Amino acid sequence: MLQGIHHTAIICSDYQRSRAFYVELLGLKVVAENYRAERDSWKLDLALPDGCQIELFSFPEPPARPSRPEACGLRHLAFRVDDLDDAIAHLHHADIAVEPVRVDPFTNKRFTFFADPDGLPLELYEIQP
């Protein structure tokens, strides 16, 4: 029945700042960008190389996330990378704080966390080709 994840939706507090973060820093491709006047809201569709998408939304005065990261609901968004050290260096070059690298005790894969402009926890998970 299910064949994969099509998209993840993110609501941001500052549309231009988050757009720059996901497009310019993380390198996601813009698929579509639309302003919905009736909702005073932007919707930006972004594509990852594997076909998955992120929908970035802006809304006037969205409520804050209850807590980080143990609030009920989505805990974090994980991106697959081929070279974790390369990805970390790219983030450090842009002055993005990255947590120390950890190793998953069950898979022996390396991973780390960083945050988007609104503090949404993002993970880099290394899967070497």
Score class of each variant (00 low, 15 high):
residue 1 M to S: 14
residue 3 Q to P: 00
residue 4 G to C: 14
residue 8 T to A: 04
residue 8 T to V: 13
residue 10 I to E: 00
residue 11 I to A: 07
residue 11 I to C: 07
residue 11 I to T: 10
residue 11 I to V: 10
residue 15 Y to H: 08
residue 21 F to M: 09
residue 26 L to I: 13
residue 26 L to R: 01
residue 29 K to N: 09
residue 29 K to D: 11
residue 31 V to M: 10
residue 34 N to V: 13
residue 36 R to G: 02
residue 36 R to T: 08
residue 37 A to S: 14
residue 38 E to R: 14
residue 38 E to A: 11
residue 39 R to H: 07
residue 39 R to C: 00
residue 44 L to W: 03
residue 44 L to I: 01
residue 45 D to R: 10
residue 48 L to N: 01
residue 49 P to Q: 06
residue 50 D to F: 04
residue 50 D to G: 15
residue 51 G to M: 08
residue 52 C to Y: 02
residue 53 Q to W: 03
residue 57 F to A: 05
residue 57 F to V: 04
residue 61 E to A: 10
residue 61 E to M: 08
residue 61 E to F: 14
residue 62 P to R: 12
residue 68 R to L: 04
residue 70 E to K: 15
residue 72 C to P: 09
residue 72 C to Q: 06
residue 74 L to S: 07
residue 74 L to F: 11
residue 76 H to S: 02
residue 76 H to V: 06
residue 77 L to S: 03
residue 77 L to M: 13
residue 77 L to T: 10
residue 79 F to K: 01
residue 81 V to P: 00
residue 81 V to H: 00
residue 83 D to H: 10
residue 83 D to Q: 09
residue 87 A to I: 04
residue 89 A to H: 14
residue 89 A to G: 12
residue 95 D to W: 15
residue 97 A to G: 06
residue 99 E to M: 10
residue 99 E to A: 12
residue 100 P to R: 13
residue 102 R to V: 01
residue 103 V to D: 02
residue 104 D to G: 05
residue 105 P to R: 05
residue 111 F to K: 07
residue 116 D to I: 01
residue 116 D to G: 06
residue 117 P to Q: 00
residue 117 P to I: 00
residue 120 L to N: 12
residue 123 E to S: 06
residue 123 E to Y: 10
residue 124 L to M: 03
residue 125 Y to A: 03
residue 125 Y to N: 12
residue 126 E to C: 02
residue 128 Q to L: 09
residue 128 Q to S: 14
residue 129 P to Y: 09
